[in-house]
Design a binder for these strands. Sequence first.
DNA 1: ATGAAAGCGCTAACAA
DNA 2: TTGTTAGCGCTTTCAT
Lengths: 340, 340
Amino acid sequence: MTVKLVDIAKHVGLSVSTVSRVVNGKDRVSAKTRQRVLDAIKELNYQPNAIARSLRSRSSMTIGIVVPDLSNNFFTLLTKGAGMIAKQDDYLVMLCNSEYDEQMEQEFVRLLMQKQVDGMILATVCKDPDYFRELINMDIPVVFVDNLPKVDANYDFVTIDNSKSSYVLTKHLLDLGYKDVAILTGSLHETSAVERLTGWKRAMEQYGIPVNEDFVGIGDFRLESGYALMNSMLELERRPKALLASNNFMAYGAIKAALQKGLRVPDDLYVVCFDAVDHTGLIDIKIPSMVQPAEKIGEIAATTIIKKIHGKDYRVYDNVILEPVFNTAGLLQNVPKVSG
Amino acid sequence: MTVKLVDIAKHVGLSVSTVSRVVNGKDRVSAKTRQRVLDAIKELNYQPNAIARSLRSRSSMTIGIVVPDLSNNFFTLLTKGAGMIAKQDDYLVMLCNSEYDEQMEQEFVRLLMQKQVDGMILATVCKDPDYFRELINMDIPVVFVDNLPKVDANYDFVTIDNSKSSYVLTKHLLDLGYKDVAILTGSLHETSAVERLTGWKRAMEQYGIPVNEDFVGIGDFRLESGYALMNSMLELERRPKALLASNNFMAYGAIKAALQKGLRVPDDLYVVCFDAVDHTGLIDIKIPSMVQPAEKIGEIAATTIIKKIHGKDYRVYDNVILEPVFNTAGLLQNVPKVSG
DNA sequence: ATGAAAGCGCTAACAA
DNA sequence: TTGTTAGCGCTTTCAT
């Protein structure tokens, strides 16, 4: 049997409440008593039962995170950042990988609610406004990242300005003189996909280039999707000379397709995208990209949640828009800072 | 106020126990009653409080995972695999990133125990036998992955045969005719690091090549470490012509160092390692490597835990040793299987 | 087939 | 300062 409060209470001849008091350190206890209890706790190796504590205190000291793709470094880093902040405040993270599956995401959310998480960070892939409203009205803080709900209501989020970033990327291409600029983006149910398309369109229009629908590829943010879409585009009579890929994987897939057709990148197809970070330092191809501060996003999301848990200033929403880094030099090299 | 058992009990004029019975579906309830309760549950949108349930049933339906580095794809995939299996059985995962910090790992383990996780998957970075014995004797299943405790006791683990894999990699180099074969490995407190060193030594000895201590680099499994160590080795009068790096990041760092010194890889320095998986499909350099089935490891670890939770066959240990894939063709290309 | 009631381990009024 | 006690929401004997 594991040792509980009553066991140490008996062991030192005190009541459970006194023992509870020293365990929680909040309440007034005489120095002598405190020491005796502390000794007993150590001696019996007492570990508080967080479940019981949670039931009573209505706080589970956990936050839930739902992301669509743990293989994508953006979400890994986001999770890492959130986890670090959580840990600082003794929160633990329940991590869920939805695999870009709407239903699975909703199941995870339900499970997390049942588990009484104190807050949630959500990179949603859903589109149902009713679901979003439900989410927003839950009595725990929910912070959206990456994709934002399209609803006429306020909510917390941490993101970058996708439209603007996409605009800047496109402008970069146009300023280089490219006219046949294609875009690959994810499912239009995801605001990140839509916003990035919007930014591209805005830049194109501003430069007086009519939008060629053949150059708009709607896929699903996966490598295979980028590969397939680019393969088709390269079959066109008039093929694109430059490409904005809405995320890293789509860019990789597109480049793969181009290379397989004997094209050179960037010479024959100039590619820019989001979040092309090379953790190996071994990729030669230049892919200027907007790099989101993923870890920072996770940190801020977690911070927001913890702040709200304590502050209880619900109905006041944090809308944080971070600046991505436009890495024009090519892939962000994870170059060691080691001297020697 | 959230709706609870008693609320639906009142709503349908039954007792909480009856309602509980239909919620859990295990016990006998008349069809009519069941339907009435089900209707009320839907009507009032009842969500069971998992915390209360856990306290009573002594099962939290969560498993803890502790890994040293969420940026490393090996651990990400492991987590993903474990999460999928967990989900199938309605378990949720509490994920902890120890950052290769022994103390942090132990704190996480303690926190997880307090949270009453039903089992734990642990990629430990610790070395204290007492700590390991404590871990092994806990009354929940603990499955070790990647690194194995060095203790004279049985425990569950899922891993590959590191020594053998390393031997095979080294043999590959020796069979190609290389004699000046260096090795870079992680902290010798990690069995994976030690085992890989052992395999290298065995192969070298078998081929009658005396071990040159200058060619043994002990670092910490990080890119910077591989970079620094290789930089030093390349300053030697007689520099290595081939390298076995004990993990992907050390290989990347080493290659970076070599390239910066004007060497060609693999022509001037032939590098093999573990887990070089190219998720971009854009890396040209050939790095033959032993690729661990990371996702599979996670799946089996989770399966083992769940099996033990239910079977209660403690003191019977699962020692699963999986086969890595020796990818001699170079980096594992994530080539799309899309047609067209 | 259903209900009453004990209790999981803890916190926090309220009392002393 | 310390103790008594009533729950937190649920499951599960034990009755009926």
